[in-house]
Simulated scan of single mutants.
Amino acid sequence: MSQSKNGASTKSPANYNRLTALRDLIAVVSVLVIVKQSLLPTTQLYAGPASTLSAMIVGSFLLHRKGLAWSDLGLQWPQSWPKTLGMTLLTMAFFLVCTQLMALVADLLFEDIGTSDRFSHIEGNLGAYLLIMALVWTHGSFFEELLFRAFIINHTSEVLGGGLRSDIVALIISSAFFGYRHAYYQGWHGALVTGAGGFAFGVFYLWFGRRNIMPLILAHGVFNTLGQTFRYLGIED
């Protein structure tokens, strides 16, 4: 805390930035939770997408108010598509390692209920499949990566003071929240596995995602596309 010329105390720039980051973080997380919980009694299918769309609108406004954009958090057009695709494959491999290892632990603690009946209507239903594909590449990959990795990790790290230690804590918090977001239809077994997937994406976000988050969006979208395609075809994934 510093003193102004008239003797009144003022916030230092560092403290002001941390308080602003905390305010914006609380705003986006609150939208994610409140919108989703408000809609769950009515619709399990669209509660998540509605909450991420709402949070994207709020997050975009908050970034704009600070003179920033999603491009400052990693949403860049790739300079090299071969490199981006290579990083996408590496991300997918690490995701599989993390989720399969966590599945071994989760199997010891909780029953695996899959995705309950949330997507049961997709099997053999082309219209429902095409609609879910639209959600996969908006809510399920684009929005979730920008919110849970770019926005939440960056703002949590800034609240904690920045640096590697703050990044690691932010990564863990973001991963736990990401897993919790999926517990309502996957159970706690699925929440642990999904949280491990969020951890995998978060590690790669800290590595290269702040410069180019596209590999994470592509990897997330491919996994979701495969899962929903298997359901449409009646194949156990």
Rank of each mutant, 00 (worst) to 15 (best):
E144D: 13
E144K: 11
E144W: 01
E144M: 10
E144V: 13
E145Y: 05
E145G: 05
E145W: 07
E145S: 08
L146W: 01
L147K: 06
L147Y: 07
F148H: 13
F148S: 13
F148V: 12
F148M: 14
F148K: 04
R149L: 08
R149S: 03
R149F: 06
A150C: 14
A150F: 08
A150W: 02
A150G: 06
F151A: 05
I152V: 15
I152Q: 12
I152E: 05
I152P: 08
I153G: 04
N154Q: 13
H155Q: 15
H155V: 13
H155Y: 14
H155E: 15
T156C: 07
T156R: 10
S157D: 08
S157H: 06
S157W: 04
E158M: 14
E158N: 14
E158V: 12
L160N: 04
G161V: 05
G161K: 06
G162Q: 07
G162A: 10
G162D: 03
G162L: 10
G162M: 06
G162W: 09
G163M: 07
G163W: 06
G163E: 04
G163N: 13
L164V: 10
L164D: 00
L164R: 11
L164N: 00
R165I: 06
R165M: 12
R165V: 02
R165C: 09
R165H: 13
R165L: 13
R165Q: 14
R165P: 00
S166P: 02
S166A: 12
S166D: 04
S166G: 05
S166C: 08
D167R: 02
D167P: 05
I168W: 03
I168G: 04
V169A: 05
V169I: 15
A170P: 12
A170I: 09
A170G: 06
A170R: 07
L171K: 04
L171P: 00
L171E: 04
I172Q: 01
I173Q: 05
I173C: 15
I173P: 11
S174Y: 09
S174Q: 06
S174K: 02
S175V: 10
S175Q: 02
S175Y: 02
S175H: 03
A176W: 08
F177D: 05
F177A: 15
